[in-house]
Design a protein around this nucleic acid. Structure first.
Lengths: 185, 185
DNA sequence: CGGGCTACCAACCAGTTGGTTGGAAGTATG
DNA sequence: CATACTTCCAACCAACTGGTTGGTAGCCCG
């Protein structure tokens, strides 16, 4: 068959993203990833060394995209949070991968240099805006960021599933309103 | 050895709680549960039928305790959220079990009659207080409850791990302040 | 055109694991 | 004291699974 190692690697990563997001590390099956990627299991080990390293690659790719796609705007935290919520809506697997990482690996994936640097930058940006008085300093910058993350990740589907769950536009407004209240001076 | 089926069942449930909270369903090992419960694996199947049913029993016990231990007080939502946060601090396995349930079973455990009834009651209680004007109705009652849950579950340890993470008392005040802002009319 | 390298694969291995079986042992009762 | 019931167990089974091996086949280059 026609060969293209870059294409094979790409398909493995894509299908592994789906499999890990759905089943986590312990529940994912390397055989299933190979089957849906249309290649042999040995190829996965050739490119990624082990199941765990494959998860690393998947996690890093997903998280880097989130950090890149949604830069912080400390001057407009409600809007920033709304864009973050949209990103989670667009890529629900990212939150799932982050949650699997927290449960199965104690959050090790989130302690990479890329993420910790990005996070430190965000905290400093929020602290800066707090010093100008535009954002309340009743809560520390790091705490505020965690709350913004928690609110942006909320899907609003578990209390009243199927009914009253906000459509994306409502979710955006909900997140915006909630964060606006948190940061109001 | 002296026999006591109630005691054996209790030990299995306790050790299964630890194992499922730590590893989830796919990652938990029935052999490990048996070993730490000090009984034979066959006993687990005698009492609980299957690994999945054992998780059901563990989940139900943990969740029922949360619902029972922390009844809602719609007249003081910030304080209610603070008590909820304390409960999560006291029993961190509950949030983990709920999260595994969401990831591995699509939240099926949370859709039991006990929980949906308790939730409906809470939503109605919040809606009632909104009608009196004491709590803002900018956000629907169900949405407000989801946000309260999200805030109460936040551990404030992932943005600045190890440093600046609030001690329980600070966490309580942080949750209270955040929820007070959300519900302010 | 043939050799060598790269990309790929079917079959396999050794260990694991949820669940079962054919009992043994403790205990209660007649 | 013997029987029967309940609680418990060691060994086992069949299927599974992460990872490896001994290749094959496509393709490039001299």
């Amino acid at each position: 068959m026609k060969r293209d190692s870059q294409a094979t690697r790409r398909r493995i990563l894509d299908e592994a993203t789906v499999e890990f997001a759905r089943h986590g590390i312990a529940g994912a099956r390397v055989d299933r990833i190979a089957a849906s990627a249309g290649c042999n299991k040995a190829m996965i080990y050739a490119y990624f060394t082990s199941k765990d390293r494959l998860f690393d690659a998947v996690f890093d790719a997903a998280v880097v995209r989130n950090v890149t796609d949604v830069p912080i705007d400390a001057a407009d935290l409600p809007e920033y949070a709304a864009r973050l919520a949209e990103q989670y809506e667009k890529y629900p697997e990212v939150d799932r991968l982050a949650t699997w990482d927290r449960l199965e690996r104690g959050g090790a994936g989130a302690r990479t240099t890329t993420i910790t640097a990005a996070t430190a930058h965000k905290v400093e940006a929020i602290a800066g805006v707090q010093r100008t008085g535009l954002v309340s300093d009743r809560l520390p910058a790091a705490t505020l960021l965690e709350l913004i993350y928690a609110i942006a990740r909320t899907r609003f589907d578990s209390v009243a599933p199927g009914e009253g769950a906000p459509v994306p536009e409502h979710r955006r407004e909900t997140v915006k309103e909630a964060v606006a209240r948190l940061v109001r001076p």
